[in-house]
């Protein structure tokens, strides 16, 4: 089976899972206590007004009709209307999405850039101080709740030494890029494109604000990948093909990276695929610590005020991103390991 067909099949499976997600999200409202009308209608609303609100929202129709309409709406890109904010739910959610993506990507970059070399060093200098240090770091790293780590980083880096801001995201990454290329995005307008100086300034501000949140979210993954890389490298370096590669005269760097590390990364990617949920969940709580205006803070505040369209929209976007990420991981896995026959 070719990679294309494999992706097609995973895509179809993904669509089924997304449909399941949508259904669960829809049903969530019916299994939750509290009448949605209560959160919209004024406290002294007359029964007549309440009835009219319910009718307006379609809440008095049979469940299956509401479900069908909900699905139909989603297919049109309509995720409902948030009365509390007076905006389309999709507009609110997609305005928040870049912040969460930036955070998750920055954390992943931090993790990969630190963890892979650390794991390799740890495996190739077994029982030396560097190995013990890396092992201790990875043990503590996977055991530390990231909200606490975030608070500790704020305490040390922001409160004590005033190196980084404690919270907020004044500019987005795309705004920085907007100084180079003309792109359309939601946000404050910027000057004409191709302003390198403004680009560097904006990027600097962005980096300055995202450093602590990215470290907070990235530490668990750095620790996990270090651990996996170390044990995988130890496994691979003991295999006969490594000796064979040395016997043909390859320098040790080639043996390590081109041979052993390549095969180590295959299982590492599998485990990371399983851990994507932790990345997204971690992003939610990191956002809460740093008041980062992403999907996580949106979800929490929407739950607190029972803003149903927003709750549903953010859950669906989270679920769909998760499914897409999983397909991407599978494709990456398949491209690294030639033995996968895409089954």
């Amino acid at each position: 089976m070719s990679l294309g067909r494999f992706l097609l099949r995973r895509g179809v499976q993904g669509i089924l899972v997304v449909w399941g997600v949508v259904t669960v999200v829809f049903l969530l409202r019916f299994i939750s206590p509290g009448d949605p009308v209560n959160f919209i209608a004024p406290l002294d609303a007359s029964p007549e007004l309440r009835r009219r609100i319910a009718e307006e929202l379609g809440l008095n129709r049979p469940m299956y009709v509401q479900y069908a309409e909900y699905l139909a709406g989603l297919l049109r890109g309509d995720m409902g209307f948030s009365f509390l904010r007076g905006q389309e739910a999709s507009a609110v959610v997609f305005a928040r999405l870049p912040a969460t993506i930036e955070l998750a990507v920055a954390a992943s970059v931090v993790a990969v850039v630190i963890a892979i070399p650390l794991g390799v060093i740890s495996a190739t200098r077994r029982h030396q101080p560097a190995d013990y240090g890396a092992t201790l770091f990875s043990l503590v790293g996977i055991s530390t709740p990231n909200f606490w780590l975030g608070i500790m980083l704020i305490l040390v880096a922001a409160v004590q030494f005033n190196l980084f801001p404690t919270s907020q995201r004044p500019v987005g990454f795309l705004e920085a890029v907007g100084h180079l290329v003309a792109i359309e995005f939601a946000g404050p307008s910027v000057a004409a494109p191709l302003d390198v100086r403004a680009f560097a300034d904006t990027l600097g501000t962005w980096l300055w604000h995202i450093t602590l949140p990215a470290l907070t979210l990235g530490t668990y993954f750095t620790a996990l990948i270090t651990r996996l890389t170390r044990s995988g490298m130890l496994d691979e370096l003991g295999k006969p093909y490594v000796d064979a590669a040395r016997a043909k005269g390859l320098p040790e760097t080639l043996v390590r990276y081109r041979h052993a590390l390549r095969n180590t990364l295959i299982p590492v990617i599998t485990v990371l695929g399983l851990q994507l949920g932790t990345l997204i969940g971690g992003a939610v709580i990191t956002e809460a610590v740093f008041a980062w205006p992403g999907l996580g803070t949106l979800l929490i505040s929407s739950i607190n005020v029972r803003d149903w369209p927003l709750i549903q929209a953010s859950l669906i976007v989270i679920g769909v991103s998760f499914v897409l990420l999983n397909i991407a991981v599978d494709a990456l896995y398949a491209s690294l390991d030639p033995r996968v026959d895409y089954e």
């Binding site: 669960v24 994507l276 949920g277 932790t278 939610v284 709580i285 859950l315 679920g319 499914v323």
Partner: peptide, 12 residues
């Protein structure tokens, strides 16, 4: 179930 990160599902 796996399509929802556990923390997100738990919060919801």
């Amino acid at each position: 179930m796996l399509a929802f990160p556990s923390l997100v599902l738990a919060i919801a």
